[in-house]
Each structure stands twice: as C-alpha cells, then as structure tokens.
C-alpha cells in the first residue's frame, strides 16, 4: 500500500496552455464556445473525487481493436500497431487505475457511424473502439491498426491527420480529459485547424506520438509511445499527517 493518498486540491488548469474555447478557424467552435468569464474556484470534494473503475470491468479483447470486433478467425485490415505509454500527473507520478478509452477511424479513415459521410470503405472486422485501465505505475497499452487521415467539413478541403481519440478518467473529476494522439511525421498535422487550436509547437509535440522501435513485435506490429498528463494535486496527504503540509 502506497503511503501517498490521492487526495487534496488540484493545481489550477493552465488556461494559457490549454486551447481557448473560441478558435474561429475550427468553425464549429464559433457557436459552441462560452463567451462569459469562467467562474474560478479552488477544487472541492466534488471535483477531487471520482468514480472507481475496477480492472474486472475489462474483457480480454477490450484493448485489442484488431480483434475486438472481428469475426472469429479474422482480423481488422491495416498497419498493425501497439500504442503504449503512461498516464502521469503534473507531479510526474504514474496514475494507477485510470480508465482510458480510445476510438478511431479505420485504416482507410472511415468511422463506423451513421453520420459518417466519407466514402472510404468500412472494414467489417473493425469497430473502432477500445478501453483499458492503467497499471500500478500508470502504464497502459493496446493494439490497433493505424488509422487513416480523413476529410471533414470545415474548410472546403480540410483533412484530419491520422489520430486516435482518448478519454481519460483519473482520480478526481477535475482531471477529466479528452484529447487526441497524432503520429510523428504526418504532414497533415501542421495543416489541421483542430491541431491549430493548440497554442504552441510544444503543445502539438505533447500530442504527437513517436515511433518506438523498442516495443515493436518483429514481423507483427510496430509501436508508438504516447504519454498523457493529468492535473496534479497541490499537496499530498501522508497517512501519518492527514492534514497535509
């Protein structure tokens, strides 16, 4: 049992680092962005707690998008990859038992969704979603196919870089985060209005996964490493000093 209890208030969110609500080149933000000032308060118990997800909710194939929607004996089509990394907090500690959910287009850039308008083919063996829960050190991994870039209605010819969407649940509702992972070297990254909401090259880099040849499986899968950082606590409670420092 770790002596460090995950309680205590969260470090304020850095609004100079996180994207603004109103980002006109990403057109949908224009009518969906609040305009009044946000109401700032220190976190309370309502934000410092969150639900607990046990590893027992996971099925064997939940973190294998190559197989979790495939017919028996078949598998999803496309470049096979492993995505792995750690969920950390701003203090650099691994976040154990974080629920990580992910979704993506197939190898051709097509989502399995009624509203999807891109003509690329559906892969009958690819659903496009998976989930896992981080280990004690905050690490996670899953297997999937590398998604393709796809066009989307914004400018008259905007394409998303290949990406995987992530939803992460830490230990406090204040940590709740949704983001996207991009792939090293994708020429669409610098053209995309959604990537463009990020305020610095450093922020873009923070969402760009590198090819990780150390984790590849020879003759099977390449690997990409993607760490994610959730908000950290301002203070850490110790068992023998419950009020903290």
């Amino acid at each position: 049992m770790s002596p460090i209890k995950p309680t205590g208030g969260f470090i304020p969110r850095d609004r100079n680092w996180q994207p603004d609500a109103l980002t006109p080149p990403y057109k949908t933000s224009i009518k969906r962005s609040p305009q009044a000032a946000l109401l700032s308060f220190p976190t309370t118990l309502s934000e410092e707690t969150s639900p607990v997800f046990g590893h027992n909710i996971l099925g064997e194939l939940d973190n294998d998008l190559i197989l979790n929607y495939a017919k028996p004996g078949e598998s999803a089509i496309g470049p096979r990859i492993i995505v792995h990394g750690r969920v950390l907090d701003e203090n650099g500690r691994g976040v154990p038992n974080a629920l990580v959910e992910f979704w993506q287009a197939n190898a051709g850039g097509r989502y399995r969704h009624k509203k999807e308008a891109y003509q690329a083919a559906l892969d009958p063996n690819f659903g496009g979603c998976g989930r896992t829960i981080t280990a004690e050190d905050g690490s996670y991994e899953f297997r999937t196919i590398q998604p393709g870039p796809y066009p989307w209605p914004n400018g008259m010819n905007d394409w998303r870089p290949a990406h995987i969407h992530f939803s992460v649940f830490g230990h406090g509702f204040a940590q709740r985060l949704i983001t996207q992972m991009y792939f090293e070297g994708d020429p669409h990254i610098k053209l995309c209005p959604i990537v463009g909401v990020l305020k610095s090259q450093e922020a873009v880099d923070a969402l760009t996964a590198l090819l990780d040849m150390n984790r590849t499986v020879p003759m099977d899968s390449r690997a990409y490493k993607f760490d994610m950082v959730l908000r950290g606590r301002r203070q850490t409670y110790f068992e023998n000093r419950k009020e903290g420092l």
């Binding site: 470090i11 969110r13 850095d14 680092w17 996180q18 994207p19 990403y26 949908t28 933000s29 950390l88 907090d89 701003e90 203090n91 650099g92 969407h165 985060l177 949704i178 983001t179 996207q180 959604i194 990537v195 909401v197 990020l198 450093e202 922020a203 923070a206 969402l207 994610m228 950082v229 959730l230 908000r231 950290g232």
Partner: peptide, 9 residues
C-alpha cells in the same frame, strides 16, 4: 512539473 496534456475536441 509536467504540463497537463493539451485537450482536443
């Protein structure tokens, strides 16, 4: 300190 991962839609 690490920076929180930037959010995306």
């Amino acid at each position: 300190y690490l920076k929180e991962s930037p959010s995306q839609t």
